[in-house]
């Protein structure tokens, strides 16, 4: 058999099977799937933003209410709000760069790759933009509380309170380390293999340095 004959056989294949679909059911199913997908994305974004805002509001409320260490609580609220603003801004920017499936394969894979690279960057640097701002806030807050206590409390009570604050700091550190570790694990387990897969795909399509996109 030659390739020309193979082409003929290939093109005759629709005569050997029949695809049966109820088009109304199909349309309903697609609309349902699209809604489900949009709902999942919206819920994921809302969950992160609402959680960050709740923490910021909590510290803001107590910062405004309390007399002692108010500035440290307000700083913590401000830093948490900063993380939320960064998250929202990043989501809005990335939404515009989302891969479009009507683009050519090279363009779509490049956008998907850029998208994954950005995810890798975000998770690898989670310490700097997500953990460190509230982490610094917590350390400053606990430090200022400790200072106040050392000035005002004496005896066994002082040791108990300092031990509690120390345990709080260690607990926070362990929690932050856990979040950091989970993010790095996700990068290694899911994102790096995905990135390599897309790079391989892209390399499979364009390895000539003077690739041009043909327009039809």
């Amino acid at each position: 058999m030659t390739f020309d004959e193979l082409q003929e056989t290939w093109q005759s294949q629709q005569s050997s099977f029949k695809i049966k679909i109820d088009s109304d059911l199909l349309l309903k199913e697609i609309q349902r799937n699209k809604k489900h997908f949009e709902y999942t994305v919206l819920w994921r974004d809302l969950r992160e933003i609402v959680a960050g805002l709740a923490v910021a509001i909590f510290f803001l409320y107590y910062g405004l209410k309390s007399d002692a260490c108010a500035w440290a609580l307000l700083l913590l609220a401000f830093l948490c709000a900063g993380v939320v603003v960064f998250l929202i801004a990043d989501r809005l920017v990335q939404k515009k760069k989302k891969p479009r499936f009507g683009d050519s394969l090279v363009d779509c894979i490049q956008s998907s790759l850029a998208n994954v690279e950005h995810q890798v960057w975000l998770l690898k640097n989670v310490l700097w933009w997500y953990l460190l701002p509230p982490g610094i806030g917590i350390v400053i807050f606990v430090g200022s509380v400790m200072l106040k206590i050392i000035q005002n409390v004496r005896g066994k009570g002082l040791v108990d309170i300092l031990l509690f604050l120390f345990a709080y700091l260690v607990g926070s550190f362990l929690l932050f380390w856990g979040v950091y570790y989970l993010n790095q694990w996700a990068v290694r387990k899911y994102l790096i293999p995905r990135k390599e897969e897309l790079e391989h795909l892209l390399h499979g399509l364009e390895n000539s340095p003077t690739v041009t996109t043909a327009e039809m």
């Binding site: 394969l105 090279v106 363009d107 041009t212 996109t213």
Partner: peptide
């Protein structure tokens, strides 16, 4: 599917 080189180039995004 017997597409021309031009059509393939447009779909794939290569020359």
């Amino acid at each position: 599917d017997d597409l021309s080189y031009e059509e393939m180039a447009a779909i794939l995004g290569i020359s």
